[in-house]
Design a binder for these strands. Structure first.
Length: 471
RNA sequence: GGCGACAUAGCCAAGUGGUAAGGCAGAGGACUGCAAAUCCUUUAUCCCCGGUUCGAAUCCGGGUGUCGCCUCCA
């Protein structure tokens, strides 16, 4: 089986062949830490974390770098608004990011460098561009000479003159050409600044990513990812800077995640519909958010609404229920067989294959999740008809879900905790009442337990309980 | 204006040539003291019009509609 992925640069699904397998070098454009991250950011980080996990699962050794942009115009402006220094602001929102990401079960990249800690390699890269005649010093700033780089526009598939039509020059800029962009900004009063051959100043936005990507991962990296809105100008400019300096192919495969819209509209400050992860986590289970995001293909636009999260939650709970029921069936299981086991085992093998095929096809998480639903249905048939259950089979199913969950992390896979003495006694009293067909008392106790978050289910093989699903 | 994406059941969403996965919601049924959970059954002229093909949701052309990028943005 071969892994295929869609490369924005070629606009084709291509077979994935890393430069130096099993190593895969992977750079993801991280957050500008001037605010809490929103659900659209979260989609990008969740999706590419899953990509990384899947590559690991496929036997690659992934080296993943995700940066923090901790100096730029937005940082400076926001720091003023909040009455903090830029460094304090960065610290505040990096901490917030780490917290939000952890709650969303996003695993940190192997390296999370900050722009301000890499001024030296950034300066060196700009110097290399100067040597190539691709950078010029003008009005205190240093600009990239876009016209001097023949491949400009290759990622966004636009000819330079077409891009020019929409380009603008901000007041106070000293560009020779509207497509040129800042590599180094000269210091203005009250702004953080670092020493450089061009005087005090700070790096431009695009150069930090080129610099850090190459610094940690080499001049040609395998994978480079971000939101679709980074295609132009950010990633276009990264290519121009990197290849401009080295003469080498910068990124072999470009991956871009689709937008997440709110109620059919793009999220934007001006519409006032930006949903921060922080805010959403007050209301929703993080696993529901992950399930929702992974239930669509990563490149498709995805609409966010209360109703859609509700649908996702209901679906996820079905899978969660199955896993919980496997656990609950385990204590009574043994070596007896009912003849159903072979059928379920072959379903498991089939699911395994189809799951991998789906993921090999440009990380089709939606199709992969469908496979899990089908396996859960087969498993439920076994739980319904296979009593007293073969322990080995239950464990195989559980192990498979555990393995898949290492990739998606959409389920809690853990043994049910035991209830405290008082609740256990209530359940026993209800059992007694049911034996005596005292339905009024039995139902009363059941309601009582429900009010305390415990749901009872009477199965042919005894009563079982579960916690009321959260949120 | 340039570039591009998308249009599949009430809702969400896979599927890129061989007569439509999966989920949610709904309806009916089985099981249950009642529930819950689960299982079974059930719901699609694949936006429209042409064309290519033995055969198209899938390819080509033309419409229509929605959205995005071209400007900070994940």
């Amino acid at each position: 089986m071969t892994l295929k992925l869609y490369n924005t640069l070629t606009r084709c699904k291509e077979e994935f062949k890393p430069l130096a397998p099993p190593l895969v070098t992977f750079y993801v454009c991280g957050p500008t830490v001037y605010d809490y991250i929103h659900i659209g950011n979260a989609r990008v980080f969740i999706v590419f974390d899953v990509v990384r996990r899947y590559l690991n699962y496929r036997g690659y050794r992934v080296k993943m770098v995700q940066n923090y942009t901790d100096i730029d115009d937005k940082m400076i402006q926001r720091a003023r608004e909040e009455g903090l220094t830029v460094a304090e602001l960065a610290h505040k929102y990096i901490t917030a990011y780490e917290d939000d990401a952890a709650r969303l079960r996003i695993r940190p990249a192997d390296l999370q460098p900050r722009a301000t800690e890499h001024i030296e390699p950034i300066v060196k890269l700009i110097q290399r561009l100067e040597e190539q005649g691709l950078a010029y010093h003008s009005g205190g700033d240093v600009y990239f000479n876009a016209g001097g780089f023949p491949g400009y526009g290759q990622l966004s598939h636009q000819a330079p003159d077409e891009l020019l039509a929409g380009a603008r020059v901000e007041p106070g800029e000293w560009k020779k050409n509207p497509l040129d962009f800042t590599l180094w900004k000269g210091r203005k009063e009250g702004e953080p600044a670092w020493e450089s051959p061009w005087g005090k100043g700070r790096p431009g936005w695009h150069i930090e990513c080129s610099s850090m990507a190459m610094h940690y991962l080499g001049e040609t990296i395998d994978l480079h990812a971000g939101g679709a809105d980074l295609i132009f100008p950010h990633h276009e400019n990264e290519i121009a800077q990197s290849t401009g300096a080295t003469g080498k192919l910068f990124t072999r495969y470009w991956l871009h995640a689709g937008y997440l819209n709110i109620e059919e509209k793009k999220m934007s400050k001006s519409l006032g519909n930006v949903l921060t992860v922080r805010r959403l986590l007050e209301e929703y289970n993080p696993l529901d958010l992950r399930f929702f995001i992974l239930s669509a293909h990563y490149r498709s636009p995805l609409n966010f609404s209360r109703e859609l999260i509700g649908q996702a939650r209901a679906g996820r709970e079905r899978l969660q229920e199955f896993v919980d029921n496997l656990y609950r069936a385990l204590p009574g299981a043994g070596t007896e067989t009912t003849g159903l086991e072979e059928k379920i085992r072959s379903e498991l093998i089939s699911a395994w294959r189809r799951f991998d095929e789906a993921m090999d096809d440009d990380f089709n998480t939606a199709a992969a999740i469908a496979v899990l639903f089908e396996l859960a249905r087969e498993g439920n048939i076994y739980l319904q008809k296979g009593h007293p259950y073969q322990r080995e089979l239950l464990e195989q199913l559980l192990n498979y879900f555990r393995e898949v969950n290492e990739l998606f992390e959409i389920l809690e896979i853990r043994k049910p905790v035991s209830l405290d003495e008082e609740l256990r006694r209530m359940i026993a009293r209800r059992e007694e009442a049911r034996r005596k067909k005292d339905w009024a008392l039995a139902d009363h106790i059941r309601n009582e337990l429900q009010a305390r978050g415990i749901i009872l289910e009477d199965t042919p093989h005894g009563t079982r309980w579960k916690h009321k699903p959260g949120r």
